[in-house]
Design a protein around this nucleic acid. Sequence first.
DNA 1: TGTACATCAGTGAACGCGCGTTCACTGATGTAC
DNA 2: TGTACATCAGTGAACGCGCGTTCACTGATGTAC
Lengths: 185, 185
Amino acid sequence: MRVTKEQMAEHRRRILEAAGHLFREKGFEAVTVAEVMQAAGLTHGGFYGHFKSKDDLIAETLAQVFAGPGSELGLQEYAAWYLTPGHRDNMAGGCAIAALGNDTLRQSPEARAKMTEGVRRLIDRLARNAPGQNDAEKRRATVAGYAAMVGALVLSRISDDPKLSGELLEDTRDWISSAPRTRAD
Amino acid sequence: MRVTKEQMAEHRRRILEAAGHLFREKGFEAVTVAEVMQAAGLTHGGFYGHFKSKDDLIAETLAQVFAGPGSELGLQEYAAWYLTPGHRDNMAGGCAIAALGNDTLRQSPEARAKMTEGVRRLIDRLARNAPGQNDAEKRRATVAGYAAMVGALVLSRISDDPKLSGELLEDTRDWISSAPRTRAD
DNA sequence: TGTACATCAGTGAACGCGCGTTCACTGATGTAC
DNA sequence: TGTACATCAGTGAACGCGCGTTCACTGATGTAC
């Protein structure tokens, strides 16, 4: 049955929100269109009134995840939130880049472009408030520091041993938090 | 038609080798049993004479990838190989942890356990020859350094902009290579 | 404002395809004598 | 060593299931008068 324009917009928002969580939790391939629609409180047939295809949904979901102002946290504050058991255990609500990075390589060029933009924007923002004597040093610390966060989160999620998993988070956080180094060359 | 025992063992080896490359390149889900068998020069029906199921193949493939003596490179030497465009562009022959880490979370506990073992062994080995004043410092540098390698490789693969992609590799390599820091607390 | 009708968002059955898995068959291997 | 037969690795057709997508239909919305 037909619904109001406002309700239709709300449905679209709910579909994107459900997809955002489900994709991060299970990856693009393992999530079905019917599953997303059910999580949004709708039936699968209506999906194609909102999106052209599942690929379209993926691209739109990524666009939405990376939309918005983004945090203004500095590198070390971001790491202090990023490298926690809470974030590790919350794939559905956590960093989309860590959760879906490799998956995106096998998706459309549009999806990959959206991911790249997400990476670039985040690094640019973190670099504003990073340790370092000058912009080049700040940027280098941010690029490497963010890479370390993503890697540590992925590795700590892989690890079924809580000790190793925790060590990855803590050691990497300490590493990023320690005093900035000058170039060793 | 029946083949000799030696040929059958060789077939099994080829299946595992083909699976190792295909899984790293495309992920577990996107690779079909028929595709693996074709890459091994066989037909799909014979697969179940070698493995119980596709899940079984995944676990055996991971076991094989992490078998063997492993490299004796130190942390910085490993990073110098790891963080290169050649490695970035060679998913099929590169680090299985970076290529399949997140994918493994959605597989069997056996597969995840094999991945964890791979992570642990690699870190233990790299820590032997890492910068630092004592074992604790060496370990911390290794854990964070390896996390940074994995993250940088994943991010540089995501990035469709060659400049950003290269920056991720280079800045992270410089970061790992720079003089070890003492704890800042 | 009220009424009649066109529009169209959502429903759920159905379609088509691909994939994991099974199975009857083939023919070379391996073995018993 | 040679022969007859049992074994079984590999083949390719077929099965069953799940998923993306389509479509006829429903009934509430929105609009023209």
